[in-house]
Design a protein around this nucleic acid. Structure first.
Lengths: 225, 225
DNA sequence: CTTCAAGTGATTGTCGACAATCTAAAGGTA
DNA sequence: TACCTTTAGATTGTCGACAATCACTTGAAG
C-alpha cells in the first residue's frame, strides 16, 4: 500500500528516457541542431543503446529530433517558418477545442479557469513581469481548455506533441511573450464566451487569439516591407 | 516475404517493417483488437525482435496499436466514438488546409483536381458503384488539397497519421460511403471555391463537408432519440 | 463448488556483440 | 594548390541471449 507508485505505473526504461530527453531538449540542455550520439547518451544515462533508440523513435514521432538512416539523429532546428506552421495548425485545432469545451466544461472547471486568470492578472498588475509564470499561466489556460474537450486524440496531439515544440522555442528564444497584457485580455474574452456556453464565439475568439500571436511572429521574422 | 532486407538496401529494416505492418493492419490482415506477439511476427518476417519493436513504436505513435508495459501490444479497436473524434479533428484541420490551398494551388494542380473529379463523376454516372475507386478518389481529392498547403507538419499529421485510421475503419466496416453522389457534389463546390481563390468559402465548404459525413456516422452509431 | 496460492511456460524489456555503413584524415596525382 | 582515392576510426543497424514480468494451469483449502 505504501509503494503505490510502483503498482499503478509500471515504468519502462525507454519511456522514462523519452521523458527525460524531452525535457532536456525542450529546456535547451541539449541545444538545437546538435548531433545525438547514441553511445555517448547511453553511457551518460547508464543504459544500453536499445532503450535509448526506442526513446529516440518516440522523440522523432513528436518531431523533436530528425533521424537519417545510417547517419544519426539531430535535435530539430526550429526556424521561424516551422513555428509559423505550428501556429497554423494550432489556430483551427484550438478553435475547435474551445467550441467543444464550451459545451463540456463543468461549472467547477470554469471557476478554476477564472481563478487562474485572476492569479495571472494580479501578477501582471504587480508588474512582476516574470516571464516564467507568464508562460506557465498561458500554457495552463490552453491546456485546461483542450483537456476539457474529452477528445483524447486531440489532447494527445496538442499537449503531448505540438506544445513540446512551443515550449522548446520559447525557452531557447530570448523573446518573452511580446504582449502579455493583450493576451490576457483575450483570455478573459474567451473565458467569458465559455462561461456563456457560446461555443461559436469561443471558437472565433480563440482562433483570433492564436492568429494574432502568429502575426507577431511573422513580423519578427520578416521586418521588411 | 522472407527477403525483406533485399527491398531497399539504403532504408532501415524497421522502417520497411513499419510500412508493411501499417498496410497489414489497415487492410485488416491483422484484425482489430488482436494481440501482437513479437516472437511470432519476428519469425514470420524473418527479422529480429529489435527492428520489429522499433516498428511497433512507430505504429503506436500513429495510433494503430496500443502497448502496455510488460503485457504487449494490441491492434487498436476503432469504435464509433473514436471515429467521431477523428472527424472532429479533421473538420477544422482540413478546413484550414483548404484556406491555405486556395492561395497556393497552381493552375496545373487545379486542372488535375478538375480531371480527378470528372473521372470520379463518370464512374458514378456509369453506375459502377465500385466502392474501391469511390474511396480512392475521395482520399485522393483530400490528399492533394492537403499537400498543396506546403505545411509539412500538417501534411504529415493528416496523411501519415490520421488517414491510416480512416482507411482502417473503411476497410473493416461493411458500410461503403453512404452518400457518394452528395459527397461528389460537395467536392465540386469546394473545387469551385478553390478555383476562385476564395479561401474563406473553401474553408467553410470543407468544414461542412466533413461535418456532414460526421453526422452520418453519428446517426449510425446512435439511431435512437 | 468456489476461491486462492504456487508453479510453469511464454513473453517482454534489456544488454552486449558483430557486421554494414558513414565520416574524416592521410596520401598520391595532375 | 586542388582533387580524388584510400584507409582508419567511430557510429549505426541488427542479432541472439538473459533476467524480469505476466498469463495460465495445477492443486489444495475452505
Amino acid at each position: 500500500m505504501q509503494n503505490l507508485r510502483n503498482i499503478d505505473k509500471q515504468s519502462m526504461l525507454s519511456q522514462d528516457l523519452g521523458e527525460l530527453l524531452t525535457e532536456a531538449i525542450v529546456q535547451g540542455v541539449i541545444p538545437q541542431g546538435s548531433k545525438i550520439s547514441e553511445p555517448e547518451l547511453a553511457r551518460r544515462y547508464g543504459v544500453s543503446r536499445g532503450p535509448l533508440r526506442e526513446a529516440m523513435l518516440k522523440l522523432e514521432g513528436i518531431g523533436l529530433v530528425e533521424r537519417i538512416p545510417h547517419v544519426g539523429a539531430r535535435v530539430v532546428e526550429l526556424n521561424c517558418q516551422q513555428l509559423l506552421d505550428i501556429y497554423t495548425i494550432r489556430e483551427p485545432l484550438e478553435g475547435m477545442a474551445c467550441r467543444l469545451a464550451a459545451e463540456r466544461l463543468t461549472q467547477r472547471q470554469l471557476n478554476e479557469l477564472h481563478d487562474l486568470l485572476e492569479h495571472h492578472q494580479q501578477y501582471l498588475d504587480d508588474n512582476h513581469g516574470e516571464a516564467y509564470f507568464d508562460q506557465q499561466g498561458d500554457f495552463d489556460f490552453h491546456y485546461r481548455i483542450i483537456k476539457a474537450t474529452g477528445n483524447q486524440r486531440l489532447v494527445t496531439l496538442l499537449c503531448d506533441e505540438l506544445y513540446h515544440l512551443l515550449r522548446m522555442y520559447r525557452s531557447t528564444s530570448a523573446r518573452q511573450h511580446a504582449r502579455p497584457k493583450r493576451a490576457l485580455q483575450e483570455h478573459w474574452a474567451i473565458w467569458q464566451a465559455l462561461n456563456d456556453r457560446d461555443g461559436e464565439l469561443a471558437e472565433i475568439l480563440m482562433r483570433r487569439h492564436i492568429s494574432r500571436a502568429r502575426k507577431v511572429i511573422e513580423q519578427l521574422s520578416s521586418p521588411d516591407s
